[in-house]
Design a protein around this nucleic acid. Structure first.
Length: 265
DNA sequence: ATGTCAGACAACGTCTGA
């Protein structure tokens, strides 16, 4: 079974690239992040024509996650256990955002997650990010005993200093702090381990390169799209890689897909 | 060079977020 994850930065804008990629990579299950569309505006027909069922969780302009599957979708769960919301500038109330969706696909329990960015360590969005990660841990802890189980998505955290092109550039920034990395360690403490992908080129399998400043041609990237699985999941992994080819050229996402191959009993 | 995208909006340019 092939399970992948991709932050597409708008499923509408990315539809031609997404259709192409599904045709060549042929994942059985694909976790999407940053749909940037409402649930009912998802391109179900185009994706369904390729043989995928879809479970989407989205409200419009920001965020949005989905699971696509050729091997069935059951027990869909939208949102985390006690998921915190965010009080946006000028908003009257805190809003829970569409950042997590879980589903059982072909006997594997899969979560597609889009962890809050954090913006700046002094910003309320950063505290929100840490609270959100705590809710993710609690939700995973509740579910991971059954079935092969995995959480895949855009974590907006580089697990080690080597996972950014130049750690000196990130002094005092989000994505590389001790607190954020502790949240990843906490996933380990409940029984999840990271599936480490191989790079198709260069040493580090970066998954994200800013559109600006020629970051991709200069390979100034970050490895922030991650996959964590329980023992039953990780023991079945036969290969994992980042498909940086999907980041090449015009009209691409700023993220590349992470692909995990499994040989499940 | 805060350098590029994407989406929404009383809207063909400016804003927010990444």
């Amino acid at each position: 079974m092939r399970i992948a994850s991709w932050n597409v930065n708008s499923v509408g804008a990315r539809l031609p690239k997404l259709v192409d990629w599904l045709g060549t990579a042929e994942p059985d299950v694909l976790c999407l992040q940053e749909l940037k569309c409402a649930e009912d505006a998802f391109p179900y027909d185009e994706i369904g024509a390729l043989g995928y069922e879809v479970a989407a969780h989205g409200t419009g302009r920001w965020n949005g996650v989905a699971v696509l599957s050729k091997v069935g979708i059951e027990d869909v769960r939208r949102g985390l256990l006690d998921e915190p919301g965010f009080l946006a500038d000028g908003a009257m109330f805190e809003a829970v955002e569409p950042r997590a969706i879980g589903a059982t696909c072909g006997g594997v329990r899969v979560w597609s997650v889009y962890v809050p960015n954090g913006r700046d360590i002094t910003h309320a969005h950063y505290a929100y990010k840490l609270r959100w990660l705590d809710a993710l841990r609690a939700t995973a802890a509740e579910e991971l005993a059954e079935l092969p189980f995995a959480v895949l998505g855009d974590f907006n955290i580089a697990p080690t200093d080597a996972d950014v092109w130049d750690i000196a550039e990130f002094a005092g920034c989000t994505h590389v702090t001790e607190e954020e990395r502790k949240a990843l360690t906490a996933l380990g403490e409940i029984g999840l381990a990271e599936v480490l992908p191989r790079a198709l080129k260069y040493d580090v399998p970066f998954t994200y390169w800013d559109y600006r400043a020629l970051r991709f041609p200069n390979n100034q990237g970050m490895r922030i799209d991650l996959a964590y699985g329980n023992e039953r999941f990780t023991a079945a992994v036969t290969d994992a890689y980042v498909d940086r080819n999907a980041r090449k050229g015009k009209g691409t996402s700023d993220h590349a897909p992470v692909v995990v191959d499994l040989d499940l009993p």
